[in-house]
């Protein structure tokens, strides 16, 4: 085999070490912990068959759909907020620049978990009742329409989901704004001066000259940020939002299949994020290749 011809002495050492490591893990699992592997139940944690109603989605699949919902809503909201912050950062008015900067630095310098704890409590327990969003969420939850079910999943958690999405978006917006700012600043000065000299207004300059060029440059890092966002949705499980990691821990408790469930959860996250990162890399190669 060609493969073995290419291996050098060092390769065999590394292979031996890896094999020894995996062997040790296997030995510990099989003989010290006596863990009984049982993967047979895992598919039914996603979809199970019911005699009366046919195929039904189970906890993990519901969690997975919630993860997708949260990721889509948050990415849209955080891109809008982030663009706003970025425009403030590059503004000629200093107070805008300072305000955006303080907000961004504040978010970037406290742990995501602490940010989520502060804002989730503030948003869901304080702002929602005052602004009447709680009543609105309850109205949605009580309505029977299929659209609400499609958009928010389980009706009981509508308010929960909205609050979580807002918190995550506020958090990610700080990072998205830095991406947009870099994109806007990368547009050459001559472009802007050229625009000014033909007499377009500041708004037109931003809208027709700077932003189109900036957006093109920001696509690959934005996809990278989307990966981070998807990974960050997992910490929402800590504030009891029913997303994928939360579903995983629920399934661990109810089935007792600790190893299998956590490995499955990790694999699903890996597949989503790895696919996106391959896509992001391809975008980047496409750009530089031109």
């Amino acid at each position: 085999m060609r493969f073995f011809k290419d291996l050098k002495a060092g390769d065999y050492v590394i292979l031996a070490i890896t094999a020894a490591f995996l062997g040790a893990v296997w030995y510990q699992l099989a003989f010290q912990i006596n863990y009984n592997w049982d993967w047979s139940g895992i598919p039914s944690f996603f979809v199970y068959y019911d005699e009366e109603t046919g195929y039904q989605q189970n906890v993990l699949l519901i969690g997975f759909f919630n993860l997708i919902r949260i990721a889509i809503y948050s990415s849209i909201l955080s891109v809008i907020l982030g663009l706003g912050l970025a425009l403030m950062r590059v503004s000629d008015r200093r107070w805008m620049n300072w305000t955006a900067r303080v907000l961004v630095e504040f978010v970037r310098n406290i742990p995501p978990l602490v940010f989520l704890f502060i804002f989730y409590f503030f948003v869901s327990d304080m702002i929602f009742p005052v602004l009447g969003i709680r009543a609105f969420a309850q109205m949605l939850a009580n309505s029977d329409s299929a659209v609400v079910g499609f958009l928010f999943g389980d009706r009981v958690f509508v308010e929960n989901l909205i609050a979580g999405v807002i918190c995550l978006s506020l958090f990610e917006a700080a990072y998205v704004s830095e991406i947009f700012r870099a994109g806007i600043e990368s547009v050459g000065k001559d472009q802007r001066e050229g625009a000014r000299s033909v007499g377009v207004t500041k708004y037109q300059e931003m809208r027709y000259i700077v932003l189109p060029q900036a957006f093109e440059k920001t696509v690959p890092p934005l996809v990278g940020q989307l990966i981070t966002l998807i990974k960050d949705t997992s910490i929402m499980s800590v504030i009891s939002i029913q997303e994928f990691t939360f579903a995983g821990s629920e399934m661990v408790v109810s089935s007792g299949r600790i190893f299998e469930v956590w490995i499955t959860v990790a694999v699903v996250y890996f597949i989503i994020c790895y696919a996106l990162s391959v896509y992001s890399r391809r975008l980047e190669i496409g750009r530089t290749g031109r």
């Binding site: 010290q32 990974k231 910490i235 600790i258 890996f270």
Partner: peptide, 22 residues
């Protein structure tokens, strides 16, 4: 690739519940 593409929380659970006992 593996570490960069799974959330740190899930990595924590993997290590705490799966690798730590091992």
């Amino acid at each position: 690739e593996v570490v960069r593409n799974i959330p740190i929380l899930v990595l924590l659970f993997l290590i705490y519940f799966v690798l730590a006992p091992v």
